[in-house]
Design a binder for these strands. Structure first.
Lengths: 111, 111
DNA sequence: TGACAATATGCCAGATATGACATATTGTGT
DNA sequence: ACACAATATGTCATATCTGGCATATTGTCA
């Protein structure tokens, strides 16, 4: 996102919610960050499940280890688009993606 | 996605539908196209509901009428990213987005 | 501890996406 | 039919993303 636009988008009265950011993000920007985070986690889960290395996953995706690391870290230089395309390339369905966007929350106090 | 393939897509003159795959799209590419289509439709629905014009929506989004038209048309030059950010900017939640990705299908033969 | 594998971070050139403009097409009144 | 609004399509300069390389950090095992 453009820095200039970021300024334009500054909205008043934004209460910091959860883990997203204590930076000057607009609600929409924060939501975008969180959405990417969900996808990041889904990707890492996928890899973890198969006991693949980032290098191995990168090869499968036609990308590089460093980019995979950034994808999983929710790095700002990684778009939601790349995450989506990666998940789809790994066989995820729209449904899979939809559910990774609406994670079940554990009950408070649960392990 | 490769530009060459994208060009082929353009050349084929898409009609909105659900099957993106009479071209040589890989399953992942087809899934990506369909996912974008779902988001496109959600965006158009949003605008339609508020009886806004594309120009009006563009203004609200800090974009242009032509790009909005392309967004709603699922144009290949529009990324899922832009669609997501637009929906979020309009106040959609992750949940909203997730459900637009898993549309309820009508029974066959229904109107 | 050292040696090695895995992951993370910084950077950049080439690839892709975006806003904006011009223009064409379609729709909707009369 | 005409006039006008809305939407669609083509193009392009600039902004942004991405793969890949180099390097740093962290983790693991002996």
């Amino acid at each position: 996102m453009k820095a200039t636009k970021r300024t334009k988008l500054q909205a008043a009265g934004w209460a910091v919610g959860d883990a997203a950011n204590f930076l000057d993000l607009s609600p929409a920007e924060a939501a975008y960050v969180e959405l990417k985070l969900s996808l990041s986690q889904a990707l890492r889960r996928w890899r973890s499940t198969r006991k693949l290395t980032q290098t191995g996953l990168a090869k499968r995706l036609g990308s590089s280890q460093s980019r995979v690391a950034k994808m999983e870290a929710g790095d700002p230089t990684v778009s939601a688009d790349l995450l989506l395309r990666s998940l789809l390339a790994l066989g995820a369905t729209s449904k899979d993606i939809a559910s990774s966007l609406t994670p079940q929350r554990r009950k408070a106090g649960a392990t």
